[in-house]
Simulated scan of single mutants.
Amino acid sequence: MTEQTTGVALVTGATRNIGRSIAVGLAEDGYDILMMARTKGEGSDRTIEEVERRGRRALLWTADVRDQDAVLAGVDRGREELGPLSVLVNNAAVRRERDFLDIDRMDWDEVVDVVLGGAFVCSQAALPDMVERGWGRIVNIAGVTGQTGAARRAHVVTAKAGIVGLTKALAHEYAASGVTVNAVSPGLIDTVRDHVPEPHRGKNVPVGRTGGVTEVAAAVRYLVGADAGFVTGQTLNVNGGIHMV
């Protein structure tokens, strides 16, 4: 199998927090970045600037990752302007808190469809390029509550647990095609939030601090790199020891 460490990377939810750090980190590693976000805002411009400052090209495509036609159109545009996809990072997510009996079907569907359905849609869009070239990397961003469970987050926990299952299924199916599929599961990460979710309050992290977005990005960069070619179907935990398996 031919190893490569550059190409085009699609990063969903790339305009802020962990997604931005991943996009910038992959740019530092030589990738052009196809950014996918639901809306264009100040974060989009900042991410593009940071990618271009590292000498790489960046293209923003605004789309809801649940919309298969919009995602396919974005991948087609990225292929035309940047080239075929080598890497996909499924990072888009909706994280909400609500008592289980207060979650209505609309809440449930939105969270599960963005996190898990979006990963399904984007993986189907990206895999043909990878299979054709005989090389590819998919990294799915999971989450520690998907492993531990959490009160008031049944929809989020279910979606994130499903991400780990999807990771293993695709790893089995595409290993022989030269495509590795792994997950990164962040713990308590210092990000810009509207509020601090309940599962993130009062936690005793063994390392004594919250994590940084660049530490999550570093895990993604490792899994994308040539040195991780023998790693597939795994979940790499970046959680400061708050959950150990």
Rank of each mutant, 00 (worst) to 15 (best):
T210A: 09
D29E: 10
K203I: 15
K160I: 10
M1D: 12
E50W: 03
D32V: 01
Q4T: 15
L170D: 01
R20E: 14
S177Y: 08
Y222G: 05
R133T: 13
V207C: 02
A119H: 04
A142Y: 04
A58L: 03
N90I: 13
G117E: 02
S86I: 01
I22K: 07
I189N: 03
A218F: 02
E215N: 09
V220D: 03
S123W: 06
E28N: 00
I189G: 05
A37Q: 04
L116S: 09
T191Q: 06
A219H: 02
G117R: 03
L26K: 01
A169P: 00
L170P: 01
A27E: 01
C122M: 15
G178D: 10
D194E: 14
D64T: 12
E50G: 00
M130S: 14
N90G: 14
A126I: 12
V65W: 00
Q68L: 06
G118L: 00
A154Y: 03
M36G: 11
V115E: 04
G241E: 04
V8W: 02
Q68R: 15
V89W: 03
A93V: 12
G208R: 07
I103N: 06
V192I: 13
P199S: 05
A73Q: 12
L59R: 11
F100C: 10
Y174L: 10
V179I: 13
I22M: 02
V71D: 06
A93Q: 04
T145L: 08
H155N: 15
G41Q: 08
R209E: 03
T210W: 11
T62G: 07
P128L: 11
G202Q: 05
A169I: 07
T39M: 07
K203G: 04
Q147E: 13
R57C: 03
L127D: 10
D109T: 12
G178I: 12
N204K: 14
A175L: 13
M244P: 00
N91Q: 05
P199L: 04
R16E: 13
L85F: 11
I163N: 11
D102Q: 15
R193E: 15
A37T: 10
I163T: 11
R98K: 15
G149I: 02
G233N: 08
G74W: 09
A73T: 10
K160S: 11
G229S: 15
P206Q: 04
A183T: 02
N239F: 05
A93N: 05
V196P: 01
K203F: 00
I141M: 10
V71S: 07
R201K: 15
D64C: 11
V89G: 08
E132N: 11
A37S: 15
W61Q: 14
V144C: 02
H200K: 00
A125Q: 08
R105W: 14
S185H: 02
N237E: 13
R96W: 02
V216C: 05
R96K: 14
V114S: 07
L188S: 09
D45Y: 00
N182Y: 04
